[in-house]
Design a protein around this nucleic acid. Structure first.
Length: 657
DNA sequence: CAGGCGCCTG
DNA sequence: CAGGCGCCTG
């Protein structure tokens, strides 16, 4: 029965949401948001205060509203009903949500209107019981949406008005702020701006450190950076050339521009721009910042990975090329093309389009229109869409375990590099993961029903929700997702600003790394695992989880072997020597798809040899009808376990394979 | 991929 | 026993 509360709150952040009177649509979304919110266990009574605290930390502007809201929220249905029955008409005449307690006696209905008032009261009770909070007019239950929208618009307009004009506005008490609060608000806003600027500086420094680190890694081997960096960032963001810029350079440009804009914003604040508008924009800025930073870091991680894989023993010309950043994008597209064996151009185009998204989003974030955030949405789901996870547990409802907060800024508290990095290390940044897990709560749900998120297309919804489901599964399966990138850790170790926290928990990137390690070792000892996952704090649970991973890898591996061996027999192959495993083999494709899904790792030749031997073993065993024995595979396992080779050193140093 | 189980080994 | 493996299952 607290419908009016979310509605009221959403007015501030969901411009245009009510245009089609979607209050009934938004309810589930609100519940979802509340349900998904990690680290905050609030009762229904504190929902609004939570929302308000989150969105307008100390904005007195909303004091009156929050009073009403929390009053209504705190009172159960019974309370509200009783209040309504006592004085429903007064309540109904107060579109800005002031309860009867504040109403003056002259607002009581005249006795001549007794019947009408009674009718209204009854209707009000019915309305409350049926859960439609929108109708607040005498006897006007037929057009609740319109009324709500109008009061909403009026509120919105008032919020945008400079303070000195508010006294001219009719109606609600929002406009009757004591003037002393104006300066107070301004101070608060300035303070927020300062904090935001501090964060920006911190993130810039972080980014620079990251860049330095990775420039070291690449040893200045990419002169194109300089050239691209000189592109006028403000000129044309849709330009295709822009997409060729390395990601983190783009991000840096964005940071610069954001910084400038935040400064401008602060000036605006001094002139009294509506705080909620600014609030929305600040949050939008922060969201963009977070995305950009995580994206930048992610990109760097990606590059380090390719560096490692390209220096592996079986270095193909292609892989060698992949270490060159100017080919970075096209190669990523090629990877997709390779896998599909067709359509090399289309993925490229898509990549280019996707790469331009952050800039677009940043540019338009000023306007705070629904479409802007839709752009961000497509950015968020980019990688999950590119590599969809097929098995999505339908039972998963919560993207995060309760105790686990997503990357979340609270800019009412100063945020320093260490905090940012800590968040990055904990919840970012990695491929399928980063963009989402680094999103603020309102964004990382990316639910189309999300309070802060406008939406438009149905197709986008389905994409978003499905990819989110995949992430949710990953997160749930790995309850202690902490550290993502060993490079970041190494950097953090040397950087006094950064706090290194090696914590327990295996991440999706660890899984990816483990899968790649499987190309070298099928039966790693726990000691090997410990040495090759130095960023993991080992305990019994973690060790057995890693062991379980390899057990699962083996299971899949042997299943494939048996399958293809039987297939060879069914195909009438008589000689074992006719069975080979090459990179073109279906068997290899299946394995590669499983352990190297992104196809961005060059599988060592030795693995092909071992696979061929394994296949031969299965072929021979099945041909000799040994498979009638229940433990016929054991002898094969015995052979294969002796064929492990050493895992390259690179796997030790980098945890973000 | 993880949980549970039985089995084996040192 | 603890640790690890493989199988089965969801």
């Amino acid at each position: 029965m607290n419908l009016s509360l979310p509605d009221q709150s959403m007015h501030n952040s969901c411009d245009g949401c009510l245009e089609d009177d979607k209050s009934d649509v938004m309810m589930p979304c609100f519940r979802k948001n509340m349900y998904d919110e990690p680290l905050t266990s609030y009762s229904s009574g504190s929902i609004i205060s939570q929302l308000l605290r989150k969105s307008v930390h100390s904005k007195r502007v909303l004091d009156e509203n929050s009073f009403y809201l929390s009053t209504a929220a705190d009172s159960g249905q019974e309370d509200q009903s009783s209040v309504s029955s006592k004085d429903s008409t007064v309540e109904a005449t107060s579109p800005t949500g002031h309860t009867s307690a504040a109403a003056s006696p002259e607002e009581e209905p005249p006795l001549t209107d007794y019947l009408q008032a009674k009718r209204a009261r009854v209707e009000n009770i019915i309305r409350v019981m049926t859960g439609s909070p929108n109708s607040r007019q005498h006897g006007d239950n037929e057009r609740p949406g319109r009324e709500t929208r109008e009061s909403y618009r009026e509120n919105k307009r008032k919020q945008r008005l400079p303070q000195h004009q508010e006294h001219g506005a009719a109606g609600g008490q929002v406009s009757r702020q004591p003037s002393s609060r104006n300066s107070e608000n301004t101070n608060i806003k300035e303070e927020e701006c300062h904090k935001l600027k501090e964060q920006l500086h911190s993130m810039q420094r972080l980014l620079h450190q990251l860049q330095e680190k990775f420039m070291q890694v690449y040893n200045q081997e990419e002169p194109e950076y300089e050239k691209n960096d000189t592109l006028d960032a403000d000129s044309d963001h849709e330009n295709v050339e822009e997409n060729n810029k390395p990601c983190y350079i783009n991000a840096e440009d964005d940071f610069e521009r954001k910084k400038r804009r935040v400064t401008a914003d602060c000036k605006d604040q001094k002139t009294g721009i509506g705080s909620l508008v600014h609030q929305g924009e600040s949050q939008s800025l922060q969201e963009t910042l977070k995305k950009e930073l995580s994206k930048a870091v992610n990109d760097c991680v990606d590059r380090v990975f390719k560096k490692v894989s390209s220096t592996g023993p079986d270095l193909s010309p292609q892989q060698r090329m992949s270490s060159s950043p100017e080919l970075h994008i096209s190669l990523r597209a090629d990877r997709k093309g390779q896998q599909g064996n067709s359509n090399t151009d289309q993925p490229q185009a898509e990549e280019a389009r996707v790469k331009s998204q952050p800039l677009k989003f940043f540019e338009s974030s000023e306007a705070q229109s629904p479409q802007d955030q839709t752009e961000a949405l497509s950015l968020v789901v980019r990688k999950p869409i590119a590599t969809p996870v097929t098995s999505i547990a339908p039972t998963v409802k919560r993207p995060y375990p309760i105790h686990q907060a997503p990357f979340q800024y609270n800019y009412s508290a100063p945020l320093h590099e260490s905090h940012i990095l800590e968040h990055l290390l904990k919840y970012g940044p990695h491929s399928n993961f980063a963009a989402l897990s680094c999103m603020p709560p309102s964004m990382d749900r990316t639910s189309p029903e999300s309070v802060d998120l406008p939406w438009d297309t149905i197709s986008m919804r389905s994409k978003v929700s499905s990819s989110l489901g995949a992430v949710a599964v990953d997160n749930l399966c790995l309850p202690h997702v902490k550290i993502e990138c060993g490079e970041l850790q190494n950097m953090a170790e040397r950087n006094p600003y950064m706090s290194l926290n090696i914590q327990e928990g295996l991440t999706p990137s660890h899984l990816k790394k483990a899968k790649l390690m499987f190309f070298y070792t099928r039966y790693p000892s726990s000691n090997v695992l410990k040495t090759y996952f130095p960023d993991v704090k080992f305990n019994r649970c973690i060790t057995s989880q890693l062991i379980k991973w390899f057990s699962n890898f083996r299971e899949f591996y042997y299943i494939q072997m048996e399958k293809f061996a039987r297939q060879a027999i069914a195909d009438g192959i008589r000689d074992v020597k006719d069975i080979t495993v090459s990179r073109d083999s279906e068997l290899f494709r299946a394995l590669n798809m499983h352990y190297n899904k992104a196809n961005d790792f060059h599988v060592p030749d030795r693995f092909l040899e071992v696979a061929e031997i394994t296949l031969h073993e299965f072929y021979n065993a099945i041909s000799a009808s040994k498979d009638s024995d229940s433990s016929w595979k054991k002898s094969i396992y015995k052979v294969i376990c002796k064929m492990d080779s050493e895992v390259p050193e690179e796997f030790k140093t980098s945890s973000c394979m």
